[in-house]
Write a protein that binds this DNA or RNA. Structure first.
Lengths: 195, 195
DNA sequence: GTCTATACTACGATAGAC
DNA sequence: GTCTATCGTAGTATAGAC
């Protein structure tokens, strides 16, 4: 079969992404990944060269770089921030595993931290610039640009840990459009934005 | 010496907290912990019984349970939320390692997740109740209680990852009181609070 | 491209000397 | 209370058969 090679390669990649996201990089063994993928242990070396390379390949394959570069063109602080909220909530929903991976790498000091910075800095630098511009234009009103960026990122990303808190929740889980609305409303108020 | 036993026990505990927080539970070996502590490998078994027990003992020793129980008495949604923000920022500042540990356990699915819930649920349940009460009293105005709790937690906790973003920052790092003020202001605006 | 078998290393844990 | 020495297990990685 023509796609047999890439099929198994992709299966391993998906299994690795799932298990890394669930239990962390170090808690996941190559054996586990291959069992999950239905592949032989030796194939990780054959396709990727090792466990670390599997990790990097996950980002090469699944990080939505194209969609994000579109965003770098935006100059409007209001539309820009709202667009990034929408995209983050969507990605968080479509590929929560990828977000988990990034979050774990950011929290711990790993040998892979520089790769992570390379990957995500352009986007957050752009968000920071939009916040700054918006404040200068009088659109937003807040203290501390760097702090505010951290707060905004926190409000967007921490939601992914909803699972952990689920046992104490009573409301129904909101659908994606509702969630985008709630997140946008929360952050816009927090930025001191008045329509 | 009288305190020789507890001294070494504490050294191991502190070394473990540091290394678990930096690199994660699985990436940290008992051997590394003991090297950092200047102790012999066998002492982990002797004092604690094993690696997992060291982890649990860290929380028994360092989780500020007393300070938090005071908080459970508070009934005022405004003072209560502001007090919890202040305490979280302070703890995040005084013992960032402990926060890292909790964050990592929340993100990944570990065999220790139930212990974590036991530890932190009372506090966040209380915050949730205060948010709910505040909204009913017309003090706050937001959509989605569960979502809002997640946003607030995110805004409070994600700041700890400042280190990762530092290379793109230009402002001076705010001192603790400034940071408490910024965090409180951000969250209060986000909750739709009007003085 | 996929398998088995195996090399080598590191892990957590403990028995037993001091 | 602290050490050395060692056990059993599980990790990553690869050589070589098919």
């Amino acid at each position: 079969m023509v796609h047999q090679e890439s099929d198994m390669k992709m299966k391993i990649l998906l299994a690795a992404k799932k298990l890394f996201a669930q239990h962390g990089y170090d808690a996941t063994s190559v054996r586990q990944i291959c069992e999950e993928a239905g592949a032989n242990v030796a194939l990780v070396s054959y396709y990727f060269g090792g466990k670390e390379s599997v990790f990097h390949e996950i980002f090469k394959q699944f990080f939505p770089a194209i969609k994000l570069t579109e965003f770098y063109e935006v100059e409007d602080p209001l539309a820009g921030i709202q667009q990034v909220i929408r995209e983050v909530v969507k990605i968080r929903n479509e590929d929560p595993q990828l977000i988990s991976l990034i979050q774990m790498e950011i929290i711990t000091i790993t040998p892979r931290v520089d790769k992570m910075r390379e990957l995500v800095f352009p986007l957050w630098k752009k968000v920071r610039d939009l916040l700054d511009k918006g404040r200068q234009e009088g659109l937003y009103e807040f203290e501390g640009l760097d702090s505010t960026l951290m707060f905004v990122l926190g409000a967007m990303f921490f939601y992914k840990q909803r699972e952990f808190f689920e046992p104490m929740f009573t409301e129904e889980r909101p659908d994606m459009e509702t969630l985008i609305g709630q997140t946008t409303a929360f952050i816009m108020r927090a930025l001191g934005y008045h329509k």
